[in-house]
Design a protein around this nucleic acid. Structure first.
Lengths: 330, 330
DNA sequence: TTGTATGCGTTATCAT
DNA sequence: ATGATAACGCATACAA
């Protein structure tokens, strides 16, 4: 790979002149410019970013550290992050922690070695104080995406509000009892429960939480719930994957969806609209989140003096489909 | 971020000595070592990879250029590539071409600027000669993954053989007519057709190809085919996404699956086993492919004198499920 | 065992 | 308009 110095020799000028030509910075003799450009083109010159970075400029690298790239939701985020960053001349160096906090630590060290200009992080450990302090003390601007992290720049959806949307929807659909599939420590459950409690103060009485992922156990729990409550049951799953699993089980049990059970998922994966019945789900603004995170980060990179911390909750949106809405006409 | 030179000053030794200590290369006075290590630790020293690379060693960067990271299959590959490369001390710089060949060109330039040690590529343009020559002439070792590319190192599944497996399976399940959903230029279709022709020479007569993705059109085509052929129809979709869409349409049409129509997808996405009926699908050896590709690449990086070109076809495996297999017992 | 000197490919600051 | 020169952070050959 040819260097500026080599081009300089070939064209009989000095290396700094080559630099000036190739960067179009200052005025140079048109003849010289032509010669140099031609030579660079002929040999397929490509600047050495390592050298550029060393010489004082940025690396134009953004470290992306996330929990699980094989999760469609995060993969989608990465796509938009890459796109937005790429348009502004930044590249991604990617790390997958696999929810392993030790490995996350390593990643945090490695990105420093590469002198990345900034960081986009989906933290493995949600809220550990130690972790937040560490990220804060890093000499690299960072934006947390997907989760709220107090005191740090972050872009995320308001899960509580999203859960409330689901609660409202299922009530409007005439549900008389409820099931939440996932951990109750989840903010979307909290919002969900709060919303329903507004109308049904003794919510607990009509509610069941299921945490197991084991099909037979799920079926048992559901059967039990259905026997106890004859009315329509509203089921909220913490993601589409689980919702799909539930849908399969309900179909196997020959429970009518949405007649007997109304089902809502989360993430609005592509499969939602293809399923039969199509699956109601909560759509997160993936692209908007990614774009916002990158813009925030680049701002912090390019205006390091601005220490303002940004906290960006965004709204999710429930997409009602056949799994929770009774067909009106037919 | 502290540098070796600074540590040298703080500990009263020379910079090369610090280098020796921190790299554990040569023998150094234990006392000095201790002092230097302590100082480095205290200030959180992290080597500057840019400088290391410039000074002659490798960048330890692997460029990953692929068509669509938001595709679950590729995202999964990336996960394994990151893992395997990471264990060997290499990091990923990621590019998403979005199937845009112009953008793919840019990516090829940019990775050169970062002086990546190697490249893993999912090409946007399958087989253009120009592209292959270009990749070959690149001063960077590269491995093509997912697609066969003659003359280049590549790791991929034999789609023809995979298609044959599906053909064999659907025949064994007693199908009397066939539908392929996707483009007939696809190797998996070729293998599929060849296999069936072994037993049914006038295959064309019992076959329909559907390429549209528009639900109403698909439904029309299917209805037409079903009216024409009373026997069981075997449907092969080029990926699970399409298979899912088909399944939804079949359910809506109240066509019995697998009784009237046996359905097989491709990619063996997680949802296959959750669907009802669960979806038969072809499983690609994602992890094995990723690991093989990385190993191949690292070999080429570390043994540049070995110019042997490796062509690694791998076997896919059909996972039969309820969508194509009639329940025997019940 | 340790220090000096040099070079990697740039950018940037000087002179000229 | 252009050429010396230094500097970025590190590795390495060489000298001591």
């Amino acid at each position: 790979m040819i260097t500026m110095t080599e081009i300089a020799k070939l064209t009989g000028v000095s290396q700094p002149t080559v630099s000036r030509v190739l960067n179009g910075n200052q005025a140079v003799n048109p003849e010289v410019r032509e010669r140099v450009v031609a030579c660079a083109k002929e040999h397929g010159y490509q600047p050495n970013v390592m050298a550029q970075s060393l010489a004082g400029s940025r690396t134009h690298l953004i470290g992306v550290i996330l929990t699980d790239i094989s999760n469609a939701f995060f993969a989608d985020l990465v796509k938009y992050i890459e796109q937005e960053a790429g348009e502004r001349g930044y590249r991604l160096i990617l790390f997958n922690t696999g929810y392993d906090t030790d490995h996350e630590q390593e990643c945090l060290e490695i990105v420093q070695r590469y002198r990345v200009d900034g960081l986009v992080v989906v933290p493995a450990q949600a809220q550990s104080r130690r972790w937040k302090e560490q990220l804060h003390s890093l000499p690299i601007p960072a934006v947390v995406i997907t989760r709220r992290a107090e005191g740090l720049d972050c872009v995320y959806v308001d899960h509580r509000e999203a859960g409330a949307q689901v609660g409202r929807h299922l009530q409007e659909q005439g549900c008389e009892s409820y099931v939440f599939f996932g951990t109750m420590a989840d903010e979307k459950f909290e919002g969900f429960a709060e919303e329903i409690k507004k109308h049904i103060p003794n919510f607990q009485k009509y509610f069941k939480n299921i945490t197991t992922k084991e099909p037979a156990a799920i079926e048992g729990e559901l059967r039990q719930h259905l026997e106890k409550y004859p009315g329509r049951v509203g089921i909220f799953a913490y993601n589409d994957r689980r919702a799909l699993q539930l849908l399969g089980i309900l179909q196997k049990m020959e429970v009518e969806v949405p007649g007997r059970a109304a089902l809502v998922g989360f993430d609005n994966t592509y499969m939602c609209e293809y399923l039969y019945p199509s699956l109601s789900s909560v759509s997160q603004p993936n692209e908007a989140m990614a774009v916002k995170a990158v813009k925030l980060l680049l701002h912090k990179i390019e205006q390091p003096e601005d220490l303002h911390v940004e906290d960006w909750p965004m709204r999710a949106r429930l997409i009602p489909r056949s799994s929770s809405v009774l067909a009106s006409g037919v």
